[in-house]
Design a protein around this nucleic acid. Structure first.
Lengths: 236, 236
DNA sequence: CGGAAAGTTGACATTCGTCAATTTGTGTGG
DNA sequence: CCACACAAATTGACGAATGTCAACTTTCCG
C-alpha cells in the first residue's frame, strides 16, 4: 500500500531491505475522506502525519481577509504534512479534492523509526526539501509566466508526478480539480482559468473533459509551458 | 559569529551546551562577496552549504526563456542552502544583494555533527521545513494580494526576521534591494513596484530612502498588508 | 427528475506592463 | 573637490492582461 512512498524516497538514495520493511510495517490508521472534506486544519497541532494512498488532496492557506490560495497538490505516495513532524502548529489546511484514502502515521512512530534507522532521516529530510523545491518552482510560475503558461506548467508537473507513481494511463490522468480550484492554485479568476484552458484546447495540447486530462503531446506542452522537470528529481 | 543561527535554531527546541559548542566549533571557510556576485550556481553540485553571517543574499531561478524570479531573501543567521545537503544538484542560484560574509560549511562536517548529535537533525529538519513555510506564504502573497499589499507584506516579513537577529534599529533596517530586484521578487514590473512603493509612502506607512527602510507604524503596515506573522515561528 | 454545482460566454472595468524620456543618486578617476 | 558615466528611481502615455459581473448552458448527483 505504501509502495509509492518507498519508490519516491528511493529516488534520493536506495533503502536497505530492513528500512523498507520497517516502512512497510509502519503502524498507521487508515482513513477515508469525502470530496471537499478537511483532513487537517491550519493552526492545529497534530500528533500524526498524513500519507496519501489514493485520491488527491490539496494544501491551502487563507489570508486574514479570507481569500484562499492552494499551495500544493498532492498525489498518492506524497507524505502530505511530513513537516508537521517538526513544524507545529501547522501553517496550512489540507482538504480532499477527490474521495481519498490516507494513512495517518503517529509522530511517535516516525521518531521511533528514525531512532532505529538514522539513515532514513536523510530520506525524510530529502522529501521535505523536495517539497520546498516545488514551492520555488511554483513561485517562478506565478511570478513570471502568463496565465496560459501557468496552467500548462501545472499540467506538466502533475503529469510527471503521477507518472512516477504509475497513475498516467493512455497519455492522461484523472483530474478532479474544478476550475475554481485551479483559479485558487494559480492566483487568477475562474473565468480566466476557463479561457486559458480553452486556449490549450484550441492549440491541441490537451483534452480536459469529464474530470479527465489527456495530454495530446507532452513534448509540445512542455515546450509551450517553458517547463524544465529538473526540480522534480525524477529518476527513470 | 554564528550566534544568530543558534538563536534561530533554538526557536524549535533548546540545544544542549554540547550541541551549541559543536555548532560554534563547526569548521567552515569564511568568504566575502561583492554586491551582485553569484555565490552558488543553479544546477551545480556543492559539497558545502552557505551560512550567511553578514549582509544580504537572495536565491533566484531563471525560466528557460531567461526571466528571473527571486524566490527567497536571506538575512544573517540564515542557512541559505542547507537543503543542498540532501538535494543535489541545487535547483536555484544564490547571489549577494549587498557585500556579504558567508561561512561555507562542508557537508561532511554537517554529517559528522548529525552523527554525533542525532537530536540536532530535528533542528535542521525544522529549519528546512520553516523555509518551506515561508515559500507557502509567498505563494499566498503572489496569488492573492495586490501589488501594494505584496510589497507591504514583504516589508513586514523582513522587519520581523531582521528583528529576530537584532538588525532592526530605530524602527528600520538597511534595505539594499533595488526596485528591479523587488520587481523580480514580487513578479511585477519595476515601474509598478515604484508606484506601489510611492503609495506606501503616501499612506505614511514607510520611508524608503538611501537604501534604508523605516517602518513608521508596524501595526498599521501589518494591518494594511493583511499580515499574519505565525508562519515565521517567532518566539519572543 | 430536479436542483445545485461547474463550466461557458459577453461586456466592461481595473490592474498592471511596456516604452521612452527625464531626473536623481552613486562611484570613480582626474 | 569636480566631472563624468552609469545605475537607479521617477514620470507620463498608452496598450495588454486579467478581473468582475451577470446571464446562460451543461453536467453531476441524489
Amino acid at each position: 500500500m505504501i509502495a509509492p512512498l518507498i519508490r519516491k524516497l528511493e529516488q534520493f538514495q536506495p533503502l536497505s531491505p530492513e528500512e523498507r520493511a520497517a516502512l512497510e510495517a509502519m503502524p498507521s490508521r487508515l482513513r477515508e475522506y469525502r470530496r471537499g472534506e478537511v483532513l487537517i486544519e491550519a493552526g492545529t497541532c497534530a500528533d500524526e502525519s498524513a500519507l496519501l494512498l489514493r485520491g488527491c488532496v490539496f494544501r491551502f492557506k487563507l489570508t486574514p481577509d479570507s481569500r484562499r490560495q492552494i499551495v500544493s497538490i498532492q498525489v498518492p505516495g506524497d507524505f502530505v504534512d511530513l513537516h508537521s513532524f517538526v513544524l507545529q502548529p501547522i501553517d496550512h489546511s489540507v482538504a480532499a479534492a477527490t474521495p481519498s484514502i490516507v494513512a495517518r502515521v503517529p509522530h511517535r512512530r516516525i521518531a521511533e523509526l528514525l531512532d532505529k534507522f538514522p539513515h532514513l532521516t536523510r530520506n525524510l529530510m530529502w522529501d521535505i526539501a523536495l517539497d520546498g523545491a516545488i514551492f520555488r518552482e511554483w513561485l517562478v510560475t506565478m511570478g513570471q509566466r502568463s496565465a496560459v503558461e501557468q496552467i500548462a506548467h501545472l499540467f506538466c508537473e502533475l503529469y510527471l508526478r503521477l507518472e512516477r507513481v504509475g497513475l498516467v494511463k493512455d497519455g492522461g490522468f484523472d483530474f478532479a480539480l474544478t476550475q475554481q480550484d485551479l483559479a485558487e492554485t494559480c492566483g487568477m479568476s475562474a473565468v480566466h482559468v476557463n479561457r486559458s484552458v480553452q486556449t490549450l484546447r484550441e492549440k491541441r495540447l490537451i483534452v480536459l473533459d469529464h474530470k479527465r486530462l489527456t495530454v495530446l503531446s507532452l513534448g509540445k506542452l512542455i515546450e509551450f509551458a517553458n517547463f524544465d522537470p529538473a526540480y522534480l528529481r525524477l529518476l527513470k
